[in-house]
Structures are given as structure tokens and as C-alpha cells.
Design a protein around this nucleic acid. Structure first.
Lengths: 221, 221, 221, 221
DNA sequence: ACGGGCGGGACGACCCGTTTTT
DNA sequence: AAAAACGGGTCGTCCCGCCCGT
């Protein structure tokens, strides 16, 4: 869907590779699997379907991922890596500035709907007590929560955020909104302006938690 | 997943209470199915497992629900009815009072975790383009959205809510938060105080959208 | 192969059986599986082949034996039961008389070649360290060994067998011969006179271990 | 199991040492395959597992043995050669002396348990009517039988063995015991003193079939 | 009407032996 | 010699009908 990424593929041709050149790369498989999962769900996606989309057989796919679980693990890992790398750039400034930057998160998500869909499916699957993806998702949520709460606390320390703000609760609310609005994005066939909505939501939150600027505090003056 | 759902349902409303109320056994089946689905997911739940939990065979279950799709339809219908009946009581006052009352929605949900889990699973399933539950969920969301937005507009008309408030956006944000926070509730093994969090969130929203009371408008005085 | 055994099938029609009469009984399945295993080996026998021989599908077979392992367990159990019931009659007299009676074991085996083949295959499979049938077979061998050694010891106590005979070694040798000669029976396409050979072998053993009769001890007299 | 064994083998005697000795690698493969087969059985051993144990890929193995059947043929051939070379030394003296020497056969076997295990597995596999190893094994048995019976007949001609001894039956019994006691060896985790037991068995047989020495003939004198 | 034993297809995941390509 | 891919096949088992008893 995103074409052949010219950055990753030829990055390692120098190694003395012997044998038949692959008609598909492992990355292609993971990408195809991600797409199919975002279309049919985890259980609705068969390894044969993934192979078929790539023009190979499931036997051939076996060389890359010996089991469906391994394939799904790779799919999840790739999605997480993608998200983390993007996230890191946003939160670099730290404090309230980072929170403001996170307001663009919706715009970023608009570019990769299949990863967002995957995330939603995994989120729901993770509520089941026995599912293997549960721990993964719970930890991911905890990580994101800690990042957000940490930024807010940093804002308090810097004097940008009001000291009486409950950082944990605000982080929880921010994540909840992001998780929920993405559902609506798909319900509207992605016609809902996700970037705009998220931006707007962040603005209201920032308005509420920031320390009032001196001249804005007394508009009547 | 639900077979030729749109074909059989209207032709043979087997589970529709028409002529006489459903037998007790049918309700037991639906309840057991709801529990199992909330534990193992839609696809992870087999009709045989439902039957086994009830002490009957899948052949016996076949008399009540000729197909798995029909059973799932009944499960969804029961969940929706349950939700709607509760909701109706909350929004009876109308306007801002109804919005305030909705702040107790989290507390209500705490009593029926299996219905909440079912709702989450259906929400996620509904983002898939081909799934039979999609339309159902999208319409449900539209209905809830209209109710919430309607209450806000009513609040504006009554002078309780500031006239510049975007009713549709606020409704969307409210629903998004509710959808998202429920996920966190399950991630925390339901130890997160769902009722408290929702109540608190509603308070901040109401604070933001309500028309300021005269004496609170000038705190400096 | 042995037709419908009129003894076992109608033995339990008195129970209030409901539903469709089975086209095949569990016993038929076990019998068919035994035959196929004796023709193609354990791993060479597929559940589909067993079902096909019975005229049903593997899905139908699933109602009786949910897994191949369960089917094989039943096959083994039936073979053991068959063997044990026969064996009991032979060893009833006890002592040397029982040993003599066991000389007819070969003749008995000639009637059920498929059970003998099954036994051979299991014997060989059991030498593998990881196989699930190993323990089963080892215990079976120990049981048979104890029975044979016990009979010999009984013969010693009764004064029928020479007191210097090593009961354990003799038992081991007897079983070894029986196991080995059955192989040759199959190598000869069962044309080797198994009953005769075994009878003859037992005679030489009995000749060697029995207490000499007084008048036979001195034929010249 | 061995594919079109009779077709490929004669057309391409890849493993036959004709013109030059086999490469070391081929011998390693055969040895590794022998070990694996003795651990997991014929069908339980995959070519990939053999290759993995050697640190190569199954594709690499393909250069030495174009098919699994060819590999198994080589494994059998090596085992037979090993056995035959040992056997030849034992039977060199001929007559009863050779029989006595064969009493050490158990001791010899104790040194190569994996070859014994292979032999047991092949023995059992050979009772199946359709297996490609059947003819091989049957012929091997016939050969061993002829050797043993020939030695006994030679003993009779030399006046070492009583003339009324049935050479064929005695040979059959000897082989049967050897085949059977090896099973017990494995059942006991090879703790059974195989060499001792076989030695002892041969002694009883020789006692029975040899021409009585003049002074031993009249113990009363 | 309710329920149960039984059987039918179908398909998914796994994996295996083999061939093709470089 | 390695790597990639194929085609086949086994096992599990799932959803669903066909009949029959109560």
C-alpha cells in the first residue's frame, strides 16, 4: 500500500547473500498482514489469505513466520515501532510544549489508518482475560500513560501547568479521548476530521490546566 | 460471522416476542452467550461452549437459535435493550440536568461488566468494513450522539448552556471519553474507579459549557 | 473383517436410547482402526481413512473420539482387554500346568493376526524415548513378565520345576521368543506354523526346567 | 515413505561407493540420520531435523540424497554393512564353534544401541504389507536364517551336533530370541545385561543340541 | 414444543518433502 | 550449497442439519 520503501530495502545488500532472491521480503509480509487484519480482524485473517495477497503459498510464508502467532507478533512489533518513533519527536520539547505538540497526534494517525485499525482491534482483544495480546497491550497503555503524566508533571515543575492538576487523571482522560475518537473516525468511514477534533480537544484541555497568563487573567483591566 | 443475517432475520423473527413472551430457557441461553462472549470474544465463542455451559447439547440449542448469527443478534438486542432502558431514565429531565445525570453512567456500567465488555468487542468489530455488526453499531452510535447533542442544544435553548458551544463536537467528545475510559477499566482488571472518573469528567465538561452563574463570574470581587 | 459380532453389539439395547440410531458403533470404529493400523502402521493411519472405511466422515468420527490419540488409546485398550481375557483362562491352573497351557498361545494368536500386528508395532514404537505409548508398553511387558515368572516360581514350590531354575530369566526368555517368532510369522506371510513352533519351543523349555520323573531319569533301567 | 525408491535407486547409485569412497559429509549425514531415527522413528524423523543437527539446511542435504527414501536406504545399507562385517568374523570358524562365538552377539550389540534400535524399528515396519522396507528386511532375515541353519548343519556333518536336530527350527528360535530380547533391553532403558543374557541363552541351546561328550554321557559312572 | 445423539462438509493451522533459483 | 517457494496432506474442530425420543 505504501509502495516499496527505498530506505529500508537496499540498506543491506552488501552482505554476501546466497541463494534465491526473495520474491517478497519479510517486511512485505508484515505489511500485507497488517492490512488484512485491519480489514478482517485478527481471527478473520488467515495465513493463507496473507500469502495469497503476496502471490505466494502459505507454505512459502512458513519460511518467514513458522506460525500465525509469530506473524502477528511481528505485525504488532512493527506497529509499535512506527508509533514510538513518531511519538518521540513530538514529546521532545517536554512539558506543556510537548502536550501542545501531541495535539497533532490525530493528524499523524490520519496517515496510517490501517495501523489505527490494528490498534483498535488489539485494544478490544486485550480486554479478554485469556488472550495472548493482553499483557502486551496493558503494558503499552501503561507506558503511554506514564509518558503523558510525566509531561504534565514536568509542566507543573516548570510553572506552565497549574499545580493542583491531577496529572494521572488528566493523562487517563487524554488517552481515553484518543482511543474513543478513533472509533468514531472509522464509524464515519474516516470522513470525520480526526486531526481537527484532536487538536480542538487538546486546546480545551490545555486551556483548563495551564497557568493563566497575567494579562489574560484580567481581561477587564 | 452471523451468516446470511439480513436474509433470515426479517423472514423469520424467531426470537422476536410476537404472540408470546420468550421462554425462560431462551433467555438463559442469551445470558450464557453474553458471558462467554465477554470472556472469549465473538469468534472465540462456539455454540457448543454455550450449550455446554447450560448443560445441553448444541443440537438442543439449535431449537432456539437456528444459527450462530441469530444467537448473536439476540445477544446484541438484549444488551441494547438493557442499555436503552437505563438511559431513558437518566435523560428524562432534559437539558443540562440530563447531562449531569449522565455523569452517573460510569457507576451504572460498573454493575454489568459483561455487557460493557460485549459493547467494547462490538465497537471494535464494527470498524471492519465487511462485518455484519457494522451497521448495527454505527446506527447505535448515531443514536447516542443525537441524544447527547440534543440535550446540549436543549440546554442552550433553556439558557443553561453557553450559546457558542458546539453541541455536536461536545457530544462526540463525551462519547469518545466514555468509550475510551471503559477500555482502561478492563486493563486495570476493573480496579479503576469507573464511576468516579466519569463523574469527574462530566463535571469538567459541565464547568466548561454551562452559562456562568452571576456571582461566580467575578471571583475577584 | 470379522463381520458384525452379534455378541457385543446388542448387549446394551435396553438403555433408553434417544435420537437417531448410530450407523456405526464405537466398537466398529475401534475395530476398523485396529485393522488399518495393522496394515499401515500408527503414523500411516489417518483418522480420515478410518472414517472412510466406515462410510462416515472424519467429522462424524469426532463424536466418538475427539482426537486421534483418544482413538489409539481405545484401540490399545481393546487389544489389551482381548489379550488379558484369553490369558486368564490359560494360567488358571497355575504352576507348570499353566506353563504347558501357555504353549497354545501361538495357536490363539493365529486367530487374530491384526491384534498381533498391532502388538508388534506398539512394541517397536515403545523403544522410542519420547513416544506416548512407551509407558503403556513397558508396564504391559512388566505385567506379563511377572505372571510368567510367578508361574515358574509356583512350579518350584509345587516341586514341579527344578529349584535351581532362574524364574526371571526363564520368563524373559519365553517372552523374547514369543515376541521374536511373531515377527517371523509375518515375514513368512503368516505361512509359518506359529502354533506348532510355539508349542515346540515350550516343550523344550519345559523339558529343561521340569523336575525329572523317576522312571524317565533312568531309561536304561 | 521412501517415495519411488526402486526407480531412483538403481538409476543413480549416488551413495554407492563406485569409483571413489563416499565423502565425509555424506557419512556424517547418514550417521546423524541413524541417530535421529533411533530416537524418533522413521516417520517421526524429518529431513529438516537431520539437516539441522548437522548445521546445514535441508536444501544442502538434498545434494547428497535427492530424496528421503535415498537417505533411508543409505542408513539401512550402512547398518547392514556394519552388521555383516561383524558377523563374518564370528562365523569364520564354522560349525558349533561359530554358534558358540555367536553367543557374544549381544555384547557386540551393546556397543551400538542406535543401530539396534534402527533394526527393531525396521523389523516392525516390515510387517506392513505395503512398506518399501519389507522386502529388504525379509531378505535380510532369510540370509541370517540360512547362515545360522547352515552352521548347525555343518555342526551335524562334523559330528558336533546331534543328527536329529532340526537346523531350520533351531535357527528360527535363535533369531526369535535375539529379536525379542533386544526389545526388553530397550524397555529396561538398556540396563538389562544384554551380553550376559544372550550368552546364557546360547549356552542352553548348545547344551541341548550338541553331541554329548563320552564322559559326560554317563554321569553316574 | 423441546431436547439429544449423530453425522456432514468445510476450513484453518501446521508442517513436510521437494524443486527451483541464484 | 543456501534460500525461497510449492503442493499436498493431516489433524483439529466448528457450524450446522438430519433424524429421533420425550
Amino acid at each position: 500500500m505504501q509502495g516499496d520503501n527505498p530506505l529500508t530495502s537496499p540498506s543491506k545488500p552488501a552482505t554476501t547473500r546466497r541463494g534465491r532472491p526473495p520474491s517478497v521480503a519479510a517486511d512485505d509480509i508484515v505489511r500485507a498482514a497488517t492490512e488484512l487484519i485491519s480489514e478482517r480482524g485478527l481471527r478473520g485473517t488467515t495465513v493463507a489469505a496473507v500469502a495469497e495477497r503476496l502471490g505466494i503459498t502459505d507454505g512459502g510464508l512458513f519460511h518467514y513466520f513458522p506460525t500465525k502467532g509469530a506473524l502477528i507478533d511481528a505485525v504488532i512489533e512493527r506497529a509499535v515501532e512506527h508509533q514510538v518513533s513518531r511519538l518521540r519527536a513530538f514529546i521532545a520539547p517536554g512539558g506543556l510544549a510537548a502536550i501542545e505538540a501531541l495535539g497533532e497526534w490525530g493528524t499523524v494517525n490520519e496517515e496510517t489508518p490501517e495501523l489505527v485499525a490494528l490498534q483498535i482491534l488489539l485494544s478490544a482483544e486485550a480486554i479478554l482475560p485469556e488472550t495472548p495480546v493482553r499483557m502486551n497491550q496493558v503494558q503499552r497503555y501503561a507506558g503511554v500513560h506514564d509518558i503523558a503524566a510525566g509531561l504534565i508533571r514536568e509542566g507543573i515543575e516548570r510553572g506552565e501547568v497549574r499545580p493542583d492538576v491531577d496529572a494521572d487523571w488528566e493523562a487517563s482522560a487524554l488517552i481515553a479521548y484518543l482511543d474513543g475518537i478513533r472509533l468514531q473516525w472509522f464509524y464515519s468511514d474516516r470522513s470525520l476530521p480526526l486531526g481537527l477534533y484532536v487538536r480542538r480537544y487538546f486546546d480545551t484541555v490545555i486551556d483548563r490546566i495551564r497557568v493563566p497568563s497575567p494579562n489574560a487573567a484580567d481581561p477587564d483591566a
